[in-house]
Amino acid sequence: MLTVVVVDAFTETAFKGNPAAVCFLEEDEEKDVEWLQAVAREFNISITCFLTRVAASGTEDSSPRFRLRWFTPVAEVNLCGHATLAATHALFTSGKVDSDTIQYVTLSGTLTAKRVSEIETAGTSTYQNGDAPGFSIELVFPVVPISECDSENASSLSRVFDGASIVEVKKTAKDDLLVVFSSGKAVEDLQPQFDKIRSCAGRGIIITGLAQPDSGFDYVNRFFCPKLGVNEDHVCGSANCFLAPYWSKKLRKNDFVVYAASSRGGVVNVCLDEQNQRVMLRGKAVTVMTGSILV
């Protein structure tokens, strides 16, 4: 019998943000990919992730290490921000770790997560938006490069988005399209047509635009990925691995407060470390369900 928790990530309010199912596997328990995918299909939310503790060795530091895998309802993916935050929240709040730092062994290499106390948060103005009593979690992810998109793809996207005013189109190293709208309001107001989005090249489409003045945010975004069984990913943390470098060049800054403009909404505090090519993602999470997998 395996423990599972459902956590809403990048929010401090239940039923907001982005939900993820976090499944705890035993160290000596090997589950095949078909079983893992079947569990993700059963939950049928954007991401179900699986944690397995990695035994410590004498050469490692004192931070606990876990193998972490992420599955949509139809496929395994190699990077996911909100489920990593959800997994970290589950580990910290369950008492399964006694450290403020956790390392994850993933398909994208070793990723680090840490607990950030309210005292530390209050001393960093960049991260004050949306903070509540308790603690935040900071993830350290790699920058995802972007490149130019061919003109044929760019011209077809305006039709996909019903004539929306598109400023720029890029392609990411994760095979997603980055579409820059003329305003954040246009991003928020879009009524997506998922059949049209599914027909586009690449894996998924992230749309973004400058946040409205006095909103308290720097830019907004939404991520659509119907090919992977996720029509809209309510808060895509890992999208900021390429959005932060993009907006850094436009806005000439490296610290951002980002709004995910899905129906559930969510806030991601982002800091770009240009020198080390890393992106720090900070947010909160709420546990909404606990249970067991019986098979």
Rank of each mutant, 00 (worst) to 15 (best):
N44Q: 05
I47F: 05
T88D: 07
T101L: 08
T52L: 03
F66H: 13
L107D: 13
A75I: 12
G95W: 06
R41S: 14
T121I: 11
V97D: 10
W70E: 03
I119D: 14
D98W: 01
S117Q: 09
L85D: 11
A90F: 09
V160K: 04
C49P: 04
A75E: 14
A86F: 12
S94N: 07
F141P: 13
D61H: 06
G134S: 07
V77N: 00
I119Y: 04
P142N: 06
N78P: 12
S63L: 04
A154I: 01
L107I: 00
P133G: 03
L91H: 10
T93Q: 13
V143F: 07
T110D: 06
A86K: 09
Y104H: 04
D61N: 15
T121Q: 06
L79A: 03
S136C: 13
L68M: 05
L107A: 14
S94M: 07
F141Y: 14
L85Q: 10
V54C: 10
K96T: 08
T93Y: 03
K114P: 00
V77G: 01
E60L: 12
F141H: 11
G130T: 11
L157G: 11
K96A: 14
T101A: 07
T121D: 05
T72L: 01
E60N: 12
L79D: 04
Q103Y: 06
E148L: 11
T93A: 11
R159I: 02
P142C: 02
A113P: 00
G123N: 06
H82Y: 10
S46M: 08
Y127G: 04
G134I: 03
E60T: 10
F50T: 02
S63I: 01
T59C: 06
G123D: 00
S147M: 03
N153K: 10
S94D: 04
P142Q: 04
V54S: 07
A40W: 08
V140L: 12
I47A: 05
